[in-house]
Amino acid sequence: MRNTILELLLKRAATVSELAATHDRPKSTVAHHVSVLVDAQLLKVVRTRRVRAIHERFYGRTPRIFRVGTVSPTDGDANAVLQQRSRHGRSRAAPAHLADQLSSIVRHVRIPQEQAREFWARLLELASDYVQLPRGGDVV
């Protein structure tokens, strides 16, 4: 549900009512998941509008990039390491974000461990191919 909410909000901001109607779920259920995403700082209120006596909140995504990685047991506090990696990634991505030239994709899949290893090997090979290209400017 949360991943679907994040994907929907990639296109435009929406209210809990709009999200609930899209999912055909109760507003209370969607509101709970939106609240969890707000607490995790993946969503924020981007605008409000007054509807009769209440203020309706429109939610939008906060980050433009997500970094998901593994932390080895020797890294110490896993949360601290992931937070540090996240800050580092955000600071390096800031210029592309400001220029609206930052792209990312998040997909959740369930695959056997052998295929996960193959996936990472292919991904690292692709990254290695691009790292070896000659520099084409000052932009990282």
Rank of each mutant, 00 (worst) to 15 (best):
V30T: 07
A99R: 07
S17W: 06
K27V: 06
T62M: 02
T62Q: 02
V140S: 14
S28P: 03
F66A: 08
H108N: 08
A20Y: 02
L42E: 00
R25M: 09
A96N: 04
R122Y: 10
R52A: 15
G60S: 04
A20Q: 04
Y59M: 01
G89Y: 14
Y130M: 02
S28E: 11
M1K: 02
R25N: 06
L37E: 00
I111L: 11
L126Y: 14
R107I: 10
G76R: 06
V139L: 10
R67Q: 08
T70A: 05
K44G: 05
R87D: 06
M1C: 09
R92A: 15
E118N: 08
T70H: 08
A116N: 05
T70S: 09
T70N: 10
T15L: 02
P95W: 01
Q115H: 09
P112Y: 06
S35P: 04
E114T: 14
D100P: 03
R87P: 01
E125L: 14
H33A: 04
Q41Y: 02
L10H: 15
V71R: 03
L133H: 02
K27N: 09
L9P: 03
V46H: 02
K11H: 15
K44C: 08
R110S: 13
L42W: 00
R61P: 02
Y130G: 01
R110G: 10
R122C: 05
N3L: 15
Q83W: 12
A127C: 14
R12N: 09
R92P: 05
N3F: 14
V71H: 00
R12D: 11
I105Q: 10
A31H: 11
L43K: 01
R57Q: 13
Q132D: 04
S72K: 07
R85T: 09
L124H: 13
D75W: 04
A116K: 05
L42R: 00
L10E: 15
P134L: 04
E7V: 07
H97R: 12
R67L: 15
F58E: 01
G137V: 02
V106H: 10
F119Q: 10
N79A: 13
Y130Q: 03
F66Q: 08
S28T: 13
A53D: 12
K11Y: 10
R67C: 07
N79R: 15
R85Q: 12
V38C: 00
D75Q: 02
N3A: 15
I111T: 05
H97C: 08
G60I: 01
A96L: 13
A21M: 05
L133I: 02
A127L: 15
